[in-house]
Simulated assay, not measured.
Amino acid sequence: MQLTVRLVAAPERLADIVRTLHRVVMRPTQQLAGCQFAQVYLRMDEPLRVDYVEEWDDAESLRPHLSGERFGRLLELLEMATEAPEVSFRCITETHGIEYVATQRAVQASKHDA
């Protein structure tokens, strides 16, 4: 399960939003069972845009935290956005490694040979 948050901050609020995301949301999240990854991103081409990503073992691992204080703080940060923030929850059902390329190339080659 992946949680992605994208928001645009007012210039005077950017530092506060990033600091709060980092200290109050991201760091505690990284310590939770089931959390594989949490990170805050700033974009060079959009300096006021803040992206926050969490990756969880599964939806069951994330679900109990949605009603907790940490997620409440994340929601408060969304209210500071200058534009409607984007929040998405993605359920990833399959993951493949480099072998997928070889397999798919073989499938495509067999279609062309037929």
Rank of each mutant, 00 (worst) to 15 (best):
A59G: 10
L78W: 00
P64W: 03
Q108N: 12
A9L: 13
V25Q: 08
P11T: 00
V40N: 07
F89K: 01
S110V: 11
K111D: 12
P64H: 06
T20L: 13
E76S: 09
A33P: 14
V101F: 06
D45K: 05
R73K: 07
M26K: 13
M1S: 14
P85I: 04
V107E: 00
L78G: 04
G72L: 04
A59K: 01
L7A: 10
A109D: 07
A33T: 08
D57A: 09
L66K: 05
F71R: 00
Q36R: 14
T103V: 03
G68H: 01
D58S: 10
H22P: 10
R13F: 09
V87S: 05
L14P: 12
A59Q: 02
R105K: 12
F89S: 00
S61K: 06
L75I: 01
H22Q: 12
E99V: 07
G34P: 14
H22M: 12
R23W: 10
P28F: 14
V101Y: 01
P28I: 04
T103L: 15
R90P: 00
D51L: 15
L75D: 06
P28V: 05
R23A: 15
V50L: 05
H112S: 05
E99A: 12
Y52S: 12
Q31W: 04
H65Y: 01
E99F: 02
E12N: 13
T95K: 08
R13T: 12
A102S: 12
R27F: 08
A38R: 08
C35P: 08
E94Y: 11
S88R: 02
A106V: 01
V87F: 02
E55S: 09
A84N: 07
L74D: 03
V107Y: 09
T82Q: 09
H112L: 11
V107W: 00
V40E: 02
L62F: 10
D16W: 07
T4V: 14
Q36T: 10
V53D: 00
D45G: 09
D113K: 06
L3N: 13
